[in-house]
């Protein structure tokens, strides 16, 4: 029995540690690796079908990506539910909503469209994620290298990519929670290289959309706001990438502020809405569903909502730490 006393636990620990470490290896030059993943998604021509899965929810889309006359073009068509379509070229991204006869036109704003999930500067990922190769997998009938981006702190989730061993194209992307359970998964179900994609495949399927209503995104920031805010608990590595004033029928009252922060892989939004005399019952609600966490509370005469793909504790800390200073009249 003494053999299994004090000594056995460290021995088991060493064995387990050895097994775990044997399954992962440093990514070599992680900057080069990230660059390869990014360039593979942007520089190559391919087409395929990918699926987004969150819990029991699933949605599939068809993507065609190519270079025509030196210009990078992408077309994504959502295959499930109501038809939606994205057309992106070097100048703008156009999102078509055929049922509503509307187009959202985005300029000067980078959307991370799968599989182009890694964007410059690559150094931003190295500061907050440990990058390693963790084995092989098979996705869409192709061998792929699993690459883990493990968060160095508890302020963000882990991510894993599986990159085609031949083309470096990301075939699968998974976001994990703190228990390493998958929160979100994007993966190709079929994909093929297509060096000679027809330009017709990259055009919108809605040529009669000239008369559709156009919504421009993002809108300019308000000239002047009568209040200022501080966010002491802003998690490191997240920087503000967008600020806009929003008015929507879903939220009655005057326009309110929408701030977006990102660390390159995840993002969260902060909404600041002045209470305008309505009988709003202050309450706090923290919910976590899939990769999204939600916090709602009030600071003085303002309602604060924080929502994003970060752990629940993070959005709560952000919301509870905020202070708002009214402009002196």
């Amino acid at each position: 029995m003494k053999v299994f006393g004090k000594g056995i636990i460290p021995v088991i620990g060493l064995l387990v540690s050895g097994v775990v470490q044997a399954g992962s290896e440093p990514a070599g030059d992680p900057l080069s690796l990230l660059s390869q993943l990014s360039h593979a998604a942007h520089d190559q021509s391919y087409s395929g079908t990918y699926v987004v899965q969150r819990g029991s929810e699933m949605e599939s889309s068809r993507i065609v990506h190519a270079h025509i006359h030196g210009e990078e073009l992408t077309r994504i068509e959502v295959l499930d539910g109501r038809p939606r379509e994205i057309i992106r070229d070097g100048k703008e991204t156009r999102c078509y909503y055929p049922v509503q006869h509307k187009i959202r036109i985005e300029k000067g704003y980078t959307r991370h469209l799968f599989p182009a999930l890694i964007e410059v500067p690559y150094e931003q990922y190295l500061r907050f994620y440990d990058i390693s190769r963790v084995g092989m997998n098979r996705v869409a009938g192709r061998e792929c290298q699993r690459i883990l981006l493990r968060a160095r702190d508890r302020q963000r989730f882990d991510h894993e990519f599986c990159a085609d061993v031949d083309t470096d194209l990301i075939l699968k992307a998974v976001t994990y929670d703190q228990h390493h359970d998958p929160l979100e998964t994007l993966l190709f179900t079929e994909v093929s290289e297509d060096d000679h994609a027809s330009p017709e495949l990259l055009k919108s399927t809605y040529p009669d959309s000239a008369q559709w209503k156009k919504v421009f995104f993002p809108p300019p920031v308000a000239d002047h706001l009568p209040y200022q805010w501080r966010i002491p608990a802003l998690p490191s590595g997240f920087s503000q990438i967008l600020q806009m004033s929003i008015q929507t029928s879903a939220v009655p009252g005057a326009p309110f502020e929408h701030l977006v922060f990102s660390d390159g892989l995840s993002s969260f939004s902060i909404f600041i809405r002045p209470l305008q005399g309505e009988d709003f019952h202050p309450f706090q609600a923290r919910l976590q569903s899939s990769a999204l966490s939600y916090y709602s509370g009030t600071v003085g005469q303002h309602r604060i909502v924080v929502v994003g793909e970060v752990p629940q504790e993070v959005v709560t800390a952000i919301g509870q730490s905020m202070t708002i200073t009214e402009e002196a009249h």
């Binding site: 980078t110 806009m244 879903a250 909404f271 999204l292």
Partner: peptide, 27 residues
């Protein structure tokens, strides 16, 4: 509340709303 702000977050997030699935009270 939750659905409205989740939808707004999606519209502003670098990850396009087109790459996400619906959030309903059930989920």
């Amino acid at each position: 509340d939750i659905q409205t702000f989740v939808a707004l977050h999606r519209q502003g997030s670098p990850l396009s709303e087109f790459q996400t699935v619906d959030y309903t009270p059930q989920t």
